[in-house]
Amino acid sequence: MTDTHIALAHGNGGRLMRELIDEVFARCLDSPSLDTRVDAAPVPGPADDCELCVSTDGFTVQPLEYPGGDIGSLAVHGTVNDLAVSGATPTVLTVNAFVEEGLEIALLERLVHSMGQAARSAGVAIVAGDTKVLRRGEGGGVYFATTGLGVRARASDLGPHRIEAGDVLLISGPVGDHGAAVMLAREQFGLRGDVRSDAASVLGLTQALLDLDGLRFMRDPTRGGLATVVHEITATSRHGARLRETDIPVREPVSSVCEMLGYDPYYLACEGRVLAVLSPADADVALERWHAIPGGEQARKIGVTTTESPRVILETAIGGERYLEELEDDPLPRIC
């Protein structure tokens, strides 16, 4: 790493964060079974035909509550979704709560209640937890960390290594809702918009595709948004990607907020969407299945992988082109 101190940008999901993970955590932990590129790691399973997956995530979003969600449900959805896009069915979760001195207990109750509800509706049991209280000023009210265990078929082989040129990229719904909702909820902009977080479990969406042979890879575009995930796909698979701007669903209020604040919706976080890469033969079936289930009604094909150099090209509505690059620094507040 060339940097000498941690900056906020080291948490933005872009290049700096990748460097931090590779060059500090992966290097210093030196664990052969740690793969920093996957959302959930397999561990030996209880039966011959399935394996266990483990995933863990921390949540520091500010504000703690925002239209469409809160840090409690987010802490469940975040880990459930990481397991889901890995092809696993989440079964149990553990929760660590870091609560700041002075936090109103009624607020904490609301958040934990919301957490419990999210877990029940995702069909996952919270089986263990730990609570620490931080001194005033040492935390943003409350932070959560959740670890989840899931089960998946041993035959499942999803990952960017399976992506071929000509594969089709699908998104399960409009992008940028969560990022825009959280930004608006921070009072500093003095704006109010009709924007709600899309935070939800994506388990139904991922399970709907698991039996398709042409399913190559799935990811939930959280920090860094759609652009960052597609960038990751090109960097790992060494294929190019072409996205069509007119095919990428962005809700009208989200694009208005972005226009006003100068943000790019393709870099704003989603918390309830899936980006899936499929063979052309299975892409239509996948799209039909998504259209038929709640949360997938607005799913679209948004682009293809190509034999071009591994960069992401956005074909704009007027027939222009631009590259979608990795995020450089962090213009955005904490959103997950």
Partner: peptide, 15 residues
Amino acid sequence: GGHERTITQAGLRNV
């Protein structure tokens, strides 16, 4: 700066 951003992001110079 907002104009320049739209021009670049929409790829107006290419078309």
